[in-house]
């Protein structure tokens, strides 16, 4: 009896979407690649062959193993201080992904809550939040981040803060729109008639229905945030040496461009691969969760 009931119960939009996603082979492959990056980042201290800060000038600019003068103990070669590039890439993945995950996570929570409030209460709440959103959208992102980083000083903590200051806008905009539409729906009307308070209606009734767009926005914003963090670190405004970050590794390699192509090229390749994989996966998510967009 209960089994029969369970069978008849319609699948939730989230599960339907995930099912569609799993059938898209490109997107699934990309998602697996992203997971591999995450795994590498998490396990970096254990799987990295060397200490990323271990410098040795005898190994200065040692080429990758497959080139003449290379050594399989340092498969991707060494940088200008003789540090192992593979180990630095693995530890750099930790920094990139941690910053991106923190920024996207915090921004999604803040943006969703403010978007719910703006869409549900409307009136002056909406006016204040929407003006703030418009204002933040008035800054080109990189300028905003560079300006604030310049004032607050570089560092991991500040980079997360600065990016969150602007990033929440994107989920807020989406959630606000969805909430405006949802509040006119019958189920919200019913909850209100039953005497539910605004908190209950927003978090228990509306929130579950706006989660999939938030998920889609969060993934494709994540790709952008990774590039942004790398750009700031490249300029010297983000993660500070000696902590390895892909952006400052590319910057480090600039002075050796003529003699040692691998120092700048490899970290950039890591950024491109990860960002491309995230973008492909997020495109798959968008298609899976919004079939209408697929045709556009």
């Amino acid at each position: 009896m209960s089994a029969a009931l369970a069978e008849e119960r319609p699948l939730s939009p989230l599960r339907l979407g995930l099912g569609r996603f799993a059938r898209n082979r490109t997107a699934l492959g990309a998602a697996i690649l992203v997971l591999l990056f995450v795994l590498a980042a998490l396990l970096a201290p254990w799987i990295a062959p060397h200490d990323p800060a271990d410098a040795d000038l005898f190994r200065r600019l040692q080429p990758p193993a497959w080139q003449e003068g290379g050594d399989w103990a340092f498969p991707l070669g060494c940088d200008g201080l003789g540090r192992d590039i593979l180990s630095r890439l693995l530890h750099g993945a930790r920094v990139s992904l941690m910053v991106a995950a923190l920024v996207i996570g915090i921004a999604a929570v803040v943006g969703t809550l403010l978007g719910l409030a703006a869409g549900y209460f409307r009136g002056w709440t909406d006016a204040v939040i929407s003006r703030l959103v418009d204002t933040l959208l008035g800054f080109p992102y990189l300028i905003f981040a560079i300006g604030l980083m310049a004032m607050m000083g570089p560092g991991l903590h500040n980079i997360v803060l600065v990016l969150v200051y602007k990033e929440w806008v994107f989920s807020c905009r989406v959630v606000r729109g969805e909430t405006l539409a949802a509040r006119e729906q019958d189920y919200v009307e019913a909850a209100r008639a039953l005497g539910c308070g605004p908190g209950h209606i927003m978090l228990r009734e509306i929130l579950p229905n706006v989660l999939s767009p938030v998920l889609v926005v969060a993934t494709f914003r994540m790709a952008y945030v990774i590039i942004l963090e790398a750009s700031l670190s490249f300029l010297g405004l983000g993660v500070q040496p000696p902590s390895p970050s892909w952006g400052n590794m590319v910057a480090d390699g600039r002075e050796f461009l003529v003699d040692a192509w691998w120092v700048s090229t490899l970290p950039g390749l890591a950024i491109l691969t990860l960002v491309l994989a995230i973008n492909l996966a997020s495109q798959g998510l968008r298609d899976a969760f919004d079939p209408r967009l697929h045709q556009a």
Binding site: A223, I227, A230, S231, F234, G247, V250, A251, G253, R254, L257, S264, T265, P267, G268, I271, L272, V275, L276, N279, L280, Q283
Partner: peptide, 13 residues
């Protein structure tokens, strides 16, 4: 897709 995934500073290098 490639174009939006390419970090500008690295492309220049």
């Amino acid at each position: 897709l490639f174009g939006v995934s390419l970090p500008g500073f690295w492309f220049g290098i």
